[in-house]
């Protein structure tokens, strides 16, 4: 039996970094900023509330808001739009991000440094600034329309801004580094001798890419896709600025219900649906990643 007093043992345990102690600060922060608000959200979503002078004066259990939301065509359209936007963004980020990560793998030290700088630099600036940059580029008098008109390809400016495609373009640019970084992390651990072995066995560069590099990159692709999907699905700023006033996605819908309609229960239900559908898609991504990495796990056993 340990003969040290309790407070000394506690002190030793905390500062030895064993057990759950190193995670305690994060657990406290998460409890305060995530668990408690989520509890409040649930209680608001599943109840009818009456507010007076800014204070809730009565709260009764009710499934009315959830039932109404699930049957409402506006919700169907809005969530369909949000999921399509997030999946389209994820697709384009994967399509553009993988070649960059591949270049990182085959490139020399300088190429790697340049790729890292170009990937990380945009993250250091505000998303709002980057989104405003797209307004300048895609606007009626922007760079894109200017070049197309100078080349004589169009006679009047195209309307690019305030369309769903402007939102996709902005989202892909904002979230591309989030896709590239996990891929680079996987690529930097890639054993190049496997590529040499593949080449020695007669595989072309493309064959090696397809049968060796791509399968080994699946964990990075899974992580990147999950992050990009989550951020795109719940995004607020880019659709606000690039989509125009009649572009409604789930996050802007929540904002309006809470801020302008002052209907907390509706906003809470929408937020719950957003979170639940996001978790379902993430579970699908995890399952697909698990399936795609099955053979590598077998090989490692």
């Amino acid at each position: 039996m340990n003969s040290k007093p309790l407070h000394i043992r506690l002190f030793d345990e905390v500062f030895s970094g064993t057990g759950i102690w190193p995670a305690v600060p994060a657990i406290i922060v998460l409890t305060v900023v995530a668990v408690i608000p989520f509890g409040v959200l649930l209680s608001l979503g599943f109840s009818d509330i009456v507010v007076s002078r800014g204070v809730i004066v009565s709260q009764e259990l009710s499934l009315r808001h959830l039932a109404t939301a699930l049957a409402d065509p506006l919700y169907h359209t809005t969530f369909q739009r949000s999921i399509t936007l997030a999946l389209t963004t994820t697709f384009f980020c994967t399509l553009l991000g993988f070649p960059v990560a591949y270049l990182f793998l085959i490139g020399g030290p300088w190429v790697r440094r340049i790729i890292l700088v170009l990937t990380i630099a945009p993250i250091l600036t505000s998303g709002i600034v980057r989104t405003y940059a797209w307004i300048v580029i895609l606007g009626g008098r922007g760079v894109v329309n200017g070049v197309l008109m100078d080349l004589g390809l169009i006679s009047a400016p195209l309307r690019i801004i305030n369309t769903p495609w402007a939102v996709v373009i902005g989202m892909v640019q904002i979230h591309l580094p989030i896709m590239i970084l996990p891929l680079i992390a996987v690529m930097s651990r890639h054993d190049r001798r496997l590529d040499e072995a593949s080449a020695n066995l007669g595989a072309s560069r493309l064959g090696t890419l397809r049968h060796v590099i791509l399968p080994l990159s699946v964990p990075g692709l899974g992580t990147g896709a999950s992050l990009v999907f989550t951020l795109s699905y719940t995004t607020f700023v880019v659709p606000q600025l690039l989509g125009g006033g009649n572009y409604l996605n789930a996050a802007t819908m929540i904002y309006e219900q809470v801020v302008y309609s002052l209907e907390w229960s509706k906003g809470a239900v929408t937020a719950m649906i957003l979170m639940a559908t996001c978790l379902i898609v993430l579970a699908l991504f995890a399952w697909m990643t698990h399936l795609a990495t099955g053979w590598t796990r077998v090989a490692q056993r």
Binding site: L74, T77, Y247, S261, E263
Partner: peptide
């Protein structure tokens, strides 16, 4: 009716 008008606007313009 501001909240209802905003919702009706969304149904008409963004729905």
């Amino acid at each position: 009716n501001r909240g209802k008008i905003v919702e009706a606007f969304d149904r008409m313009f963004a729905g």
